[in-house]
Design a protein around this nucleic acid. Structure first.
Lengths: 169, 169
DNA sequence: TTGGAAAGTCAACAAGGCTGACATATGCTG
DNA sequence: CAGCATATGTCAGCCTTGTTGACTTTCCAA
């Protein structure tokens, strides 16, 4: 596995981009980029009593308004106890509304209030500004490659739950 | 900022890849991909008493053997107290060796022991396997784009500390 | 030689994961 | 209708990993 021989040439095609060193660089790039990716919203959240967990909940409620608690915890990949702690504070602070389901009254459908939408915008603007700068700097082809590689690296279960939710709603 | 008008055409060049929707998809791709990215080592770490923080320390000590605690905490972007807790357990468990500096005795130089190198290999193999699969599936051009975008998104201070460290050592 | 700065350590606290146990309301099935 | 399954909420307690504050040791420069 770690023999560094992944750089062999097969059938004349150079696989230099698959050397262990290249892969390690990819790993480190993910690490440093993720830090940058979360830095701006983190600064905003730190001023309130919120954290990254609140941001994630707000983000996905905004993207899939009316989603249920169960959907959300599959997407986020956390336990209901963990998610509930976050949702409780967001509802108490008037950022999220939880409506009893009409067809199935066991379900709670989640929506952002106006205040919730305002915070979502603030966080999203900051995060998109950095993403936009990176996209603009590197151009559409680099962005296409970026998305392809990320898709191939994803936790598929979690992502499928999300895609299905968005396709259905 | 959120007006969705970033998709204008400027001077005949389509900027469709900079729409708010495209940026939001990039944000979500980062979220889901980072989950996948950490999933495999997380599983291994969970079986021991270790977490992601231990993995990060082990990774960078392996990449820059002899680095000091101070270097490491700049790279990792955490407080020295936070890093110290992790290092203490790694040293106690015989995975990391901490040597008092020769020129400056305040400094501690960090090295992986044989056991530490073994764990590093195990974690790295798992993580590189997923990265390799993603790279192989998408090809060298996508990988190039992926790296360009990540570089542009990085926390520059932290990354520069790392680059300088590796260039110097 | 002495005071400030730097490196590292210890203690205590908070956020946000986790498991387990349990309550409530609702839906579904025999 | 009875009984089981499902969706959600809650309490308690644990762990990891971040934080700040206080402290020691060491180095360096005035």
């Amino acid at each position: 596995m770690s023999d560094g021989r992944t750089a062999q040439v097969h059938g004349g095609e150079s696989l230099l981009f698959l050397t262990d060193e290249q892969l390690r660089q990819g790993i480190e790039a993910m690490f440093f980029a993720y830090r940058g990716f979360t830095a701006d919203p983190d600064r905003i959240l730190a001023e309130m009593a919120y954290g990254r967990a609140h941001h994630r909940a707000i983000h996905f409620i905004n993207r899939a308004p009316g989603t249920t608690v169960n959907n959300l915890l599959v997407i986020l990949g956390v336990t209901k106890q963990s998610l509930n702690r976050v949702l409780r504070t967001l509802v108490a602070d008037g950022l999220v509304e939880s409506r009893v389901g009409t067809s199935d009254k066991r379900e709670r459908h989640l929506f952002l209030t106006e205040a919730g939408k305002a915070l979502e915008s603030q966080l999203s603007d900051a995060q998109r500004a950095r993403m936009r700068a990176a996209f603009r700097k590197t151009g559409p082809e680099a962005v296409a490659g970026f998305k392809q590689v990320l898709e191939a690296m994803m936790d598929t279960d979690m992502h499928h739950a999300y895609v299905n939710l968005r396709d259905g709603g």
